[in-house]
Design a protein around this nucleic acid. Structure first.
Length: 828
DNA sequence: AGCACGCCGACT
DNA sequence: GTCGGCGTGCTC
């Protein structure tokens, strides 16, 4: 037989450009195929898990390639459509394939490697030829089978140990080897079964005799086993040790006795980490309102024209029912569904709602799931591709990273809350927008795409206006719940009339009182965490700054510290001003903590909870806060934008926006759009079936056009106004932005480098280049930052421009390797 | 990203 | 004189 020599182009999970060519050893010729993981050595020390991107017979001329060490998979774990998606992403978002791979593959699929050292089998224990440090290592290895390089480094108390190890290898004292751990292991539980001798009923008497009458717990275990395995209404195929012991109220030791007597045997059984529930209702039982039905027809109409559908449905208009109908239809065609949501909106509420109709067909994929759970979902979808369809995840409900899953026959993608900026990954690369990536992914699979929102992103709405997307409006609240009544309160007037009760206007205060009296719930929204935004010296206006970032420290009362929201550094409040010695140091501005405190003081009877980044650090905190509020254990929920996202509570009657102005004054072209979205979304939380809700907005600028748009619920008007502004200043959707951020610890080096890059880019793109400029926060973690913004024309040849940009950046980095550079395409 | 190599300053 | 600091360049 002819022995062909193959080469494989491998993607490595590293932020370096390009693929790397390895040689396939003959003995692996049968095993290699595109999409399988391989183990390769890269550089002198490191071993990585790579992915076969392509196989060919072209002999590399530049280097002699290294060999692939082993193939890890029986079946590819990445399928060709995914590679095409990755390639698009790396081109569009100007990042490396390895970075895409890192974002895409669950961490559990990557192997960890660390070099270890063991005693050489031929070592003669002649310590006299060794120096002090060498003796230390050899002695340590006599006690431990193996030591990692880091462990050795700590034993000899020095960092540079490679030469040391090398002489030890030469003296035949030690050997090194690469230890690889497979990180993902199927979860297994210990199960119990009857030994083969006792499976037959006739032998049970014999077993009872063996146990003896005195060992009553052992008898109990025996009968509990029979019950679980045969006589229960739903007999178990596998009986876990845990449930058997629980049923018999016995101990592990007592069970061990039975194993010893040869009656029971234990074995390992691998189980799924994922929760499974059955559907309890059918989709047919959902009756759509007339408006919903019309919208559904319009959506299908849009699909028939091969258009992405933008579903603009106000809060509580019943978008989810439409989604469920569309999902069912897709399943009927034998295709898969991807349902995207922003991470924070992926609550039990929506998960349960889908599971109610689709049961086990729903797979959930987001960051709260741990490494192994993610790997399991991926593995199951892969199994579907190669082993028919035994697992049956047909609907994936997930956050942005679920666009990377190995779909087969994807028929529908829904991106709900499509305006939400957390669809955009900021750090690290790939800085992708999951909504936009989903649109590309949909095209790849010829899947239908629905983008849904009560407040669509301006970019999406623009696409709908110019006919690129099909627009479907759903502007009646489901079950005829009326829209909340919105009232604007001017804080300036209230202050003049001395009507402010701490942070609350009289109007809000009275309304809160009434709402609480009626046993209804309140949501208060303030987009600032912490207690006060800053502390300030009354006499000299000194404000404490972070030592490593260019921002003011924020006072957190609960921990009684000043905290930096950029690097996390915290410090005590000085008792006197370091600038002038004054002791009059006061807090200014207000955050969620302060509002929480004031509410408790003014409404001592009520129970108050705060929900922000600080109060939801622990794993279940977010879930607990939500479920307590749902169960009406809390009366007032105070929070940052977290409270605006995708939650439905049916007892909330009042929503208070404590200070609308902070949102409006961000120096960002999207600040008005975002302020509107936040206010409209949080307002939508108010009012349910029985009563019209109320929203009170406190502001210093009651005539601000955004506030007026919220008041009159005029999304279209706001959009027009924003589009006008964007056109004038050449912002998206009239241009496409690429932002380049440069970082360096020295501001001088940074400025030089930034100017140099900007000059280079101006030669290419002339007037499309803006900056370099310091961003609002010009230093983070002791690195200075500067931004260069590129505004490409909307219709320009984008890929060609990006290619030119990439070449320029690469050249720049060659000359300025110390500068850290990040490229952000379509920054949000 | 990691890591080796190379060149400088501060110690045994 | 060596150790360890960091700038520089390469990895199939």
């Amino acid at each position: 037989m002819e022995r062909k020599t193959f080469f494989a182009d491998i993607v490595l999970p590293l932020p370096i450009p390009g693929l790397f060519t390895y040689r396939v050893p003959f003995e692996l010729n049968e095993e290699v195929s595109v999409g399988k993981r391989v183990v390769v050595q890269f550089g002198k020390k490191k071993i990585y898990t790579g992915l076969i991107f392509s196989l060919h017979e072209n002999v590399p001329l530049q280097h002699t390639p290294k060999y692939i060490l082993s193939v890890l998979d029986e079946y590819p774990i990445v399928v060709p459509s995914q590679f095409r998606f990755w390639q698009w992403m790396s081109e569009y978002y100007l990042c490396k394939m390895g970075e895409v791979m890192n974002a895409a593959i669950p961490a559990a699929f990557k192997l960890a490697s660390e070099s270890s050292v063991v005693l050489h089998p031929e070592f003669d224990r002649n310590f006299s030829v060794l120096n002090e440090k060498e003796v230390l290592i050899a002695r340590a290895l006599e006690n431990n089978q193996q030591l990692s390089l880091t462990e050795i480094s700590s034993i000899v108390e020095q960092k540079k140990i490679i030469p040391l190890i090398q002489t030890l290898i030469e003296k035949k004292v030690v050997l090194t080897y690469e230890e690889l751990h497979e990180k993902y292991k199927p979860k297994s539980v210990v199960c119990v079964k009857m030994s083969s001798d006792y499976v037959d009923e006739k032998s049970w008497n014999q077993a009872e005799k063996m146990i003896g009458k005195k060992a009553s717990k052992q008898v109990a275990l025996f009968f509990a086993y029979l019950q679980l395995s045969r006589f229960d209404s739903k007999p178990h195929t596998h009986i876990t040790r845990k449930e058997l012991i629980e049923r018999a109220e016995a101990s592990t030791a007592q069970l061990q006795q039975l194993v010893k007597k040869g009656i029971f045997e234990t074995y390992e059984h691998s189980v799924s980490r994922l929760v499974e529930t059955d559907a309890t209702e059918t989709v047919d039982s959902i009756v759509l309102s007339e408006e919903q039905d019309t919208a559904l027809q319009q959506i299908k109409n849009g699909f028939s024209k091969d258009k992405v559908v933008l579903l603009h449905g106000i809060t509580s208009s019943g978008k989810t029912e439409l989604y469920i109908k569309l999902i069912q239809q897709t399943l009927d065609e034998g295709k898969q569904v991807l349902f995207l949501l922003p991470e924070i909106a992926l609550t039990a509420q929506i998960i349960n709602r889908l599971r109610k109709y689709f049961g086990k067909k729903v797979g959930v994929y987001h960051s709260k799931y741990n490494r192994d759970e993610k790997a399991e979902i991926w593995q199951r979808l892969i199994n579907d591709q190669y082993l028919g369809n035994p697992s049956g995840y047909q609907i994936i409900l997930g956050a942005r990273s679920s666009v990377f899953l190995p779909f087969k026959n994807l028929g529908l993608i829904i991106a709900d809350e499509e305006h939400d900026s957390s669809y955009k990954q900021v750090e690290p690369a790939p800085r992708y927008h999951a909504r936009d990536a989903a649109v590309y992914l949909g095209g790849l699979h010829q899947a239908k795409i629905v983008l849904g929102s009560a407040t669509p992103a301006i970019e999406s709405y623009f696409n709908a206006l110019n006919g690129k997307y099909a627009l479907v409006n759903l502007n009646v609240r489901y079950g005829n719940i009326s829209l909340p009544e919105i009232e604007i309160v001017n804080i300036k007037d209230q202050l003049k009339q001395k009507k402010m009760k701490s942070v609350f206007s009289e109007t809000l205060y009275l309304q809160m009182h009434e709402t609480l009296n009626q046993k209804k719930q309140i949501i208060l929204f303030q987009n600032r965490r912490g207690f006060s935004t800053r502390v300030e010296c009354e006499d000299c206006q000194w404000i404490p700054q972070c030592r490593s970032c260019d921002v003011s420290m924020v006072y957190h009362k609960q921990i009684n510290l000043l905290k930096c929201h950029y690097c996390g550094f915290s410090m005590a409040i000085p008792d006197h001003c370091p600038a002038c010695g004054s002791t009059r140091i006061l807090s200014k501005g207000l955050g969620t903590e302060k509002i929480e405190e004031e509410t408790s003081v003014l409404f001592p009877e009520s129970s108050v909870t705060r929900m922000d980044l600080d109060s939801t650090r622990t794993k279940n905190a977010y879930f607990d806060i939500i479920s307590d509020f749902e169960d009406r254990k809390t009366d007032v929920l105070i929070g940052t934008q977290m409270v605006t996202k995708g939650l439905d509570f049916d007892n909330v009657e009042l929503v208070g926006i404590i200070n609308a102005d902070a949102m409006l004054n961000y120096p960002d072209f999207r600040s008005h759009e975002r302020a509107f979205q936040l206010m409209a979304q949080v307002s939508g939380r108010s009012g349910r079936r029985d009563k019209r809700g109320k929203v009170i907005i406190q502001t210093y600028n009651s005539n601000h056009p955004v506030i007026q748009a919220v008041l009159e619920n005029k999304y279209e008007a706001l959009c027009q106004q924003q589009l006008e502004h964007r056109k004038q200043f050449h912002y998206p959707p009239y241009s496409r932005l690429v932002q380049i951020t440069l970082k360096h610890k020295s501001p001088e080096t940074l400025t030089d480098a930034a100017n140099q890059l900007a000059d280079r880019l101006r030669k290419l793109f002339a007037k499309k280049i803006f900056g370099p400029e310091y961003p609002v926060v010009s230093r983070i973690k002791n690195l200075y930052l500067k931004n260069i913004l590129i505004k490409f024309d909307r219709n320009a040849a984008l890929l060609k421009n990006k290619e030119a940009l990439k070449i320029e950046i690469t050249a720049f980095l060659k000359d300025n390797p110390a500068v850290i550079l990040a490229v952000d395409v379509d920054p949000v």
